Simulated scan of single mutants.
Amino acid sequence: MARCKGCGAEIIFIKTSSGKSMPCDARPIIYWENRKGKGKIVTPNGEVLSCDFTGEADKATGLGYIPHWATCPKAENFKQTGSKGENLC
């Protein structure tokens, strides 16, 4: 298992539907898909969705992974600005 170079947490890399590898927390969590949700989740097949992390258990969408930039205490050390002005993790 890979580890974050900033905080040492275990991470996994999931290839997104755009073809990029996204570092995610290694532990899968239950999520509820919500297009207006403030959370982000990466599904095992690489979809990045807006979601909620609480809800009725029997209505959960599934298991997914939180992008590591959302939980890493050292995330600011890894942000770079790409050629189009986007932040890269």
Rank of each mutant, 00 (worst) to 15 (best):
77 N>H: 13
27 R>H: 13
7 C>W: 04
44 P>V: 05
80 Q>M: 10
86 E>K: 07
38 K>H: 09
50 S>F: 10
63 L>R: 11
61 T>W: 02
13 F>C: 01
20 K>W: 14
89 C>L: 08
57 A>Y: 08
11 I>H: 01
87 N>Y: 09
10 E>S: 08
60 A>L: 04
88 L>V: 09
74 K>G: 03
64 G>P: 06
38 K>C: 02
15 K>I: 13
30 I>M: 07
38 K>A: 11
28 P>N: 07
48 V>L: 15
20 K>D: 13
42 V>T: 14
89 C>H: 12
77 N>L: 14
66 I>Q: 02
16 T>Y: 01
76 E>P: 00
62 G>S: 04
39 G>W: 00
5 K>L: 13
60 A>R: 10
21 S>D: 14
50 S>D: 07
64 G>T: 10
20 K>R: 15
66 I>F: 00
61 T>D: 06
69 W>T: 05
4 C>M: 06
23 P>K: 12
22 M>F: 07
40 K>I: 09
53 F>P: 02
35 R>L: 09
14 I>F: 03
88 L>I: 13
80 Q>F: 05
56 E>K: 08
7 C>Y: 06
62 G>Y: 01
41 I>W: 03
58 D>A: 10
21 S>C: 03
43 T>F: 08
68 H>R: 11
75 A>S: 12
47 E>A: 15
29 I>Y: 06
51 C>I: 04
41 I>L: 09
42 V>K: 01
21 S>N: 14
73 P>G: 13
14 I>T: 07
43 T>H: 07
37 G>S: 05
5 K>F: 04
70 A>L: 15
62 G>C: 05
41 I>P: 00
5 K>Q: 14
18 S>A: 15
46 G>D: 04
48 V>Q: 11
60 A>P: 00
6 G>S: 06
5 K>D: 12
1 M>Y: 10
29 I>H: 05
39 G>V: 00
76 E>G: 05
14 I>H: 03
52 D>I: 00
6 G>V: 04
55 G>K: 01
12 I>D: 05
67 P>L: 05
7 C>H: 05
17 S>E: 14
7 C>S: 10
28 P>K: 09
63 L>W: 11
67 P>C: 03
20 K>T: 14
32 W>M: 06
87 N>G: 04
29 I>F: 08
9 A>T: 12
33 E>A: 13
51 C>A: 15
2 A>K: 09
49 L>T: 03
68 H>C: 10
39 G>S: 14
44 P>W: 05
46 G>E: 04
37 G>T: 04
59 K>M: 09
81 T>N: 04
35 R>V: 04
33 E>Y: 06
73 P>K: 15
47 E>S: 12
39 G>M: 02
48 V>C: 07
47 E>H: 15
66 I>R: 07
80 Q>R: 12
16 T>G: 10
26 A>I: 07
14 I>V: 15
17 S>P: 00
85 G>L: 08
19 G>P: 11
89 C>W: 15
85 G>P: 06
38 K>N: 13
54 T>E: 15
52 D>N: 15
23 P>F: 02
68 H>P: 06
80 Q>H: 08
50 S>L: 06
36 K>V: 00
80 Q>W: 04
3 R>H: 09
22 M>E: 13
62 G>K: 02
56 E>P: 00
11 I>F: 07
55 G>E: 03
6 G>F: 01
26 A>Q: 05
19 G>T: 07
75 A>E: 07
4 C>Y: 01
36 K>P: 00
7 C>Q: 08
2 A>P: 02
58 D>K: 12
10 E>L: 12
8 G>S: 07
72 C>Y: 01
